[in-house]
Design a protein around this nucleic acid. Structure first.
Lengths: 234, 234
DNA sequence: CCTACAGGTAGACACTTGTCTACCCAAGCA
DNA sequence: TGCTTGGGTAGACAAGTGTCTACCTGTAGG
């Protein structure tokens, strides 16, 4: 669950999975004991030393695995979503010529991406729980690693917004700030998504509304007011 | 630091402050040991039992104190900010009649509030660190308590936006969702604010930009496009 | 003046922890 | 064939832990 099979040694994988299980249900990584993890993995305490220097080491290894597992799929999902929404025959593509269709398309891409992201969360809840725990956790090493990971995700988002032309006027670099907010919020909301299954429909709608407000507001502040007005007029 | 003197017993306060100190620099609350906290407080381990049932109990007490200390001041700051920005003599007040001035006023209120919030964070860093740690920490009790606290803050924000007329068209209840995003983000950004003093100016600007984009985008989606276009045209 | 009691201490208990040294075994390779 | 080595185990150690019972002391209230 969350730990890909790229990790060679069996014992190593067992330990990582055990840590992931304990972290999600019980405690933060730094609060676990070496013996506890080994016990959960069904191994001798000393085996831990064969694979990891300490808990930061274990945490880093898990985080790297997760990043590798999640990053690429997420981008592909977004690209698929963008390509699946096409204009009606003969209609113009550019924001200048067809603002309304572009806005609809953007929102559609957002909806699909958010949906797929939440599906992903649903399938790997423990990985996300560990991530959020340690992002604000006690270990500076893990905090920094996770921050770097989220920065990469944000850069992906910003890049995709540009390439897929999801916003008018998306040239400037302050788009990255917006992407970071989106990224942080999606991770944050995903905690609620995991813990409150009965609220999922609403969380889904809120997330979409959050992203749309944020991006549209950003575009408006950057001088695309006229276009957006046309796009939102019924 | 962060623990008001409303707590009667001296030992109790000492323990709370010790926990706050250890949490911020070392570990999450659930990873602390009772003896460790007592040692830091200069007290006998057993004294802990005189005041708290367990660590959740300690955490809850700290959180309640903090909420009481922070909530009211924050609202007052926002109100002061709103009142300090007045239209030039004879100018109209309403969004309909004077959109540009209203937008300027809103952004001004945002700027001032954000500034004051960060000042507050700077003065009580440990309280905020503990809050963010436990918001995503291992204890469900503390998580829920902190979520409730943030919900209250969000309601304050939403209410103030309405009362102070910081947005056109701010009647609907989905405003609360936006307020929750703002609240979460402000707490999240405040961690960076504490840890990266050299970035503070930029974090400050980003926060303001984030809030403005979000609120304006929200208003635009709710049909205030025409007004906002007028407001943003130079 | 006595007494109740909140707040603090002391010592002891069984238990868990990280880490050390030493031993084991199977796979890969010369 | 023999040997190196990665991955796993066993046992022991001092140190730290939560919690129990028992004891002390100042202060408020009758």
């Amino acid at each position: 669950m969350g730990i890909s099979n790229t990790v060679a040694a069996k014992g190593k994988r067992l330990l990582m999975e055990a840590a992931l299980r304990l972290t999600a249900t019980t405690r933060s990584l730094s609060a676990l004991s070496l013996r506890e993890v080994a016990r959960e993995a069904g191994l001798n305490p000393n085996t831990f030393y064969r694979h990891f220097k300490n808990f930061d080491d274990l945490g880093l290894t898990i985080i790297k695995e997760m990043t590798k597992d999640i990053r690429q799929p997420l981008r592909e999902l977004r690209r698929q979503a963008a390509e699946s929404v096409l204009p009606a025959n003969g209609e113009a593509h550019s924001w200048q010529q067809n603002p309304k269709w572009n806005l609809v398309r953007s929102r559609q891409v957002t909806r699909v991406t958010v949906k797929l992201f939440f599906d992903y969360v649903e399938q790997n809840p423990n990985a996300f729980i560990l991530g959020m725990r340690e992002l604000h956790g006690a270990s500076p090493v893990l905090r920094n690693a996770l921050r770097a990971m989220m920065k990469e995700f944000s850069e992906d988002i910003a890049e995709d917004i540009k390439e897929l032309k999801l916003l008018p006027n998306s040239e400037d670099e302050s788009l990255l700030d917006i992407a970071e907010v989106i990224c942080r919020e999606m991770f944050s909301i995903s905690m609620d998504y995991i813990e409150q299954p009965e609220q999922r429909e609403q969380l889904y709608n809120n997330a979409e509304h959050m992203i749309t407000s944020l991006t549209i507001g950003h575009a408006l502040l950057r001088g695309s007011g006229q276009l957006l007005l046309q796009a939102t007029e019924s």
